[in-house]
Every structure is written in structure tokens, then in C-alpha cells.
């Protein structure tokens, strides 16, 4: 009799546990529904649109047209140049800044950090407008350049590649500095003291001790910068002034001037593929490097 009660109880408990699991699982439904309708469904629709004709038949003509069009390759090249250029600038500007932050007292560092975080929190349109004002033909930068006699007449700094690159570097730099600074701050000061006591110069110590120890942070920052900038739209649209057309701008133009949904959708899938491939391979490479003993 008791044995039977025990099995009945066990079955009841199992049922309760299962019901509880279902209840907790169901709590994720609102988020999943919003993301499903607002992000996944649109992506599937783009995929479907890229593979169908206006009449709804299956076709790959959008892709063949895309890949045989020289404009596609040119905008792909511009996209990679902008992302690569942004990454190089972030490395050159961001590593010294992160090192400065890591080498000062925590008090000073947190004050300087406000200057890094303020642009991060400022609207992208506000920042783009600021650059437009600074970089114009009769803007502050050109006034300074001409006034100091460095150049004889104003340099074209905006509505071109340079302006777009400056805007993108400005957008990504804080995002790059955060993980790099975090990695440098966590370096044990005794390691540096040990290097110094054995006669390493500061430069030698920076190259052979600090940089390798901060490598993880630098790589995470780099992956974010490179992959994130591949889809940039606002900055090239305003600071590029119509002369710079990375893929995101081409998508917009294919839609607004040509009304070509199939072509725009195929371009979109191309962009998504590049982001996915580069994202997955760089993340995979990072893991590989990190899992190697002694590399981190």
C-alpha cells in the first residue's frame, strides 16, 4: 500500500516538475514572439524575395545579375576598405588610449573614461552632424589647416571616403577601447615589475608583456569593429555624400531609385553572408588562439 502511494506521489511530483518547467519555458514566449515577427520573419522574407521573380516563380537571376554587375564588386570592395580602415585606425588610436587609461590611477582613469563614454551615449546623428560642421570646406579643421599654412587651400575632408572613415572610426573607437582597456587593467602589475627588474625597457615590456597579455581584449574589440561596420548605413549616407556606396547604401539605392526588390534582397543576403562568415571565422580563430596553452 505504501509502495503504491509512493509511486503515485512520484508520478505526481514528476507531473508537477514538468508543469513547472513548461511554465518557466513559456515565460520566454513574449520575447521570442517579438524577435520572431520583427526580425526572423523579415529575414526569411528577404531570402524568399531574393529567390523569386515578380510573378512568384523560383529564380536565381537576382544573384547572377548581382554577381556579374561590376557595381556589386566595387561596393563590396568599398565596404571591406571602410571596415578594414576603421579597424586599423581603431588599433592605432585605441591601444595607446587604453594603455594610458590602464596606466593612470583608477580615479583619473574613471574621469577620462567619461570622455570615452560620452560619445558612446550620444546620438549617431548628433555625432555625424558634428563631423559635418568640423570637416566642411569652410569648417574648423580646414580653417586651422589653411590658417597654419600647412595647406594652401581647403582639403576635401567630407562627402568622400575620408569623411566616411572619420565618422566610422569615431563611432567605433569607444566600443574598441572598452574591452582593450578591461584586458590591460587586469594585467598583474607584478608581471611588469618583473620585466623591468630583468632590464626590459618600457617599449620592450610593452611589446613582449603588455600587448600579448591584452591580446584577448584587443581581438574581441577588433572583431566587433570589423563585423559591425560591414553594415553601416547612416555614416556613409551622410558623410559620404552619395559618392561612397558600401553595400548598405547600394541596398537603399537599389530600392529607392530602381524599385528592384529582388536585387536589393539578394544584396541583403550577400551582406548577411559576409557578416556571418567573417563573424564565425574570426570568433572561431579567437577561440583557437585562446585555447592554446600559454597564449592568454
Amino acid at each position: 500500500m505504501t509502495a503504491m502511494t509512493a509511486t503515485v506521489n512520484a508520478a505526481g511530483l514528476r507531473r508537477d516538475a514538468a508543469a513547472e518547467r513548461r511554465f518557466f519555458l513559456s515565460l520566454s514566449l513574449p520575447s521570442l514572439a517579438v524577435v520572431g515577427i520583427g526580425a526572423i520573419l523579415p529575414l526569411f522574407w528577404i531570402l524568399q524575395q531574393s529567390l523569386t521573380t515578380a510573378r512568384g516563380d523560383f529564380t536565381v537571376v537576382n544573384y547572377t545579375a548581382l554577381l556579374t554587375n561590376g557595381l556589386t564588386w566595387r561596393s563590396l570592395l568599398v565596404t571591406l576598405e571602410l571596415s578594414g580602415g576603421t579597424l586599423v585606425c581603431c588599433l592605432l588610436l585605441g591601444i595607446p588610449l587604453a594603455f594610458l587609461l590602464a596606466s593612470t590611477s583608477p580615479r583619473t582613469a574613471s574621469r577620462l573614461m567619461v570622455l570615452v563614454l560620452l560619445p558612446l551615449w550620444t546620438s549617431i546623428l548628433v555625432r555625424t552632424y558634428g563631423w559635418l560642421v568640423l570637416l566642411r570646406r569652410d569648417g574648423l579643421i580646414n580653417d586651422l589647416l589653411v590658417g597654419s599654412g600647412l595647406v594652401s587651400e581647403p582639403v576635401p575632408l567630407v562627402y568622400n571616403f575620408t569623411g566616411t572613415l572619420i565618422g566610422m572610426v569615431h563611432y567605433m573607437l569607444p566600443i574598441f577601447v572598452l574591452p582593450t582597456y578591461a584586458a590591460m587593467r587586469d594585467i598583474d602589475g607584478n608581471v611588469i615589475r618583473a620585466a623591468a627588474s630583468m632590464g626590459a625597457s618600457l617599449w620592450h615590456c610593452f611589446r613582449t608583456v603588455i600587448l600579448p597579455l591584452a591580446f584577448g581584449g584587443i581581438v574581441s574589440g577588433s572583431v566587433i569593429v570589423f563585423v559591425y561596420t560591414l553594415g553601416f548605413f547612416i555614416t556613409p549616407a551622410i558623410l559620404g555624400g552619395g559618392r561612397i556606396s558600401p553595400i548598405a547604401i547600394r541596398i537603399d539605392r537599389t530600392l529607392s531609385t530602381l524599385q528592384d526588390w529582388g536585387g536589393a534582397a539578394a544584396l541583403g543576403i550577400l551582406l548577411l553572408l559576409i557578416v556571418a562568415i567573417l563573424g564565425v571565422t574570426t570568433l572561431g580563430a579567437t577561440r583557437l588562439i585562446r585555447s592554446k596553452p600559454g597564449a592568454d
Partner: peptide, 28 residues
């Protein structure tokens, strides 16, 4: 694994380029 899948699904929009969400959402 299911929890990791839910987390990944919920943060997908942060890694998809905005222009893609924009044109897809336009049609939906």
C-alpha cells in the same frame, strides 16, 4: 542547450545589420 538557444535567438537582432531588418520589416 535549450536555454543557450533561447538566449541566442533573443540577441540575434543585435548582430544583424540594421539595413536588413529595416527593409525586411518594411515589407512585413
Amino acid at each position: 542547450r535549450l536555454a543557450r538557444a533561447i538566449y541566442a535567438f533573443a540577441v540575434i537582432p543585435s548582430v544583424v545589420p540594421g539595413i536588413l531588418l529595416a527593409i525586411g520589416l518594411f515589407f512585413v
